[in-house]
Design a protein around this nucleic acid. Structure first.
Ligand SMILES: [Zn+2]
Ligand SMILES: [Zn+2]
Ligand SMILES: [Zn+2]
Ligand SMILES: [Zn+2]
Lengths: 143, 143
DNA sequence: CTTGACCTTATAGTAGCTACAGGGTTTGCA
DNA sequence: TGCAAACCCTGTAGCTACTATAAGGTCAAG
């Protein structure tokens, strides 16, 4: 199958497929006489593997490692697989916590402006300006 | 003050300060005879404003707009300020929701491997491989 | 025989920095 | 006076994971 069909079947754009090939995530397929890429079933599966991992937010470097475990002797322990997933879980978890703090801060800031008024009187702008001068701010300095 | 002192006072690296100047967020300061940047109090405050907004996750483009409101007539309504903050809140909120879904999926996947064993028997790898072949997976297809 | 839908490579852009390389300047100390 | 450390300058390239061109080659239908 050509790149366009692989793209349609996986929902991944042709350019992204070529990008994955350049990055060494997808093996280079055979070419037709005119230079077109010709993919087979195994490429479809490999790409599906990559996209599935991507949908879990895994970075490409980790996916490369995960895919590499297929070439390893099957009797090896799987602890490095777990480590990758655990790392990803903790990355995601700390991102969530950081974003939740951020949301709280933004909501506190937003609460400074509740009625329609002018720029001169806007509690949001005022808070930001005061904080820039070194004053305590509603968003960060909540005792 | 020189760039290094501004950097130390704000906790922002010199290169980042120069970057903000290039990006038009920080006005270009006067230069000494040898070409060194010489900052004044207003630069300190402007940079603090930028860093405060950055700490709320605001993109530079929005910070540029927010800073621009100081040049606007003070009698204008503040609704565009609010709109920027509201946009940021909803961005952050949807990021949180997406990451929480991700975390659930990762935990489900992680649960497939609970005891030490080999790559051949690893429930994580098996789940990923099966999903690549089109099977339902623990992480995404939870009915 | 031409039109349109494919395909190819190479290059540059996105956000927000960060890290050089390759220089000039200033300050302090022997 | 000489020299080294600690500053500063510009310009460029790197990071992630794509995305979007530009400029061209190929193939099937009408
Ligand atoms: Zn307001
Ligand atoms: Zn604040
Ligand atoms: Zn396992
Ligand atoms: Zn899944």
């Amino acid at each position: 199958m050509q790149i366009g069909e692989l793209a349609k079947r996986t929902g991944c754009e042709s350019e992204t497929i070529r990008y994955y090939e350049r990055e060494g995530l997808l093996p280079a397929p055979a070419r037709s006489s005119s230079g077109y890429r010709r993919y087979e079933q195994r490429h479809l599966e490999q790409l599906a593997f990559i996209l599935h991992c991507r949908s879990l937010g895994m970075p490409l470097a980790d996916i490369r490692l995960l895919a590499g475990f297929h070439q390893q002797p099957a009797a090896e322990p799987c602890d490095r697989v777990n480590a990758l997933i655990d790392q990803q879980i903790s990355r995601v978890h700390s991102q969530i916590e950081a974003l939740q703090r951020l949301e709280q801060q933004l909501l506190l800031l937003r609460a400074r402006c509740d009625s329609p008024h002018t720029l001169a009187d806007c509690g949001i702008l005022k808070t930001l300006d005061d904080a820039a001068s070194g004053d305590a701010c509603a968003c960060h300095d909540t005792p």
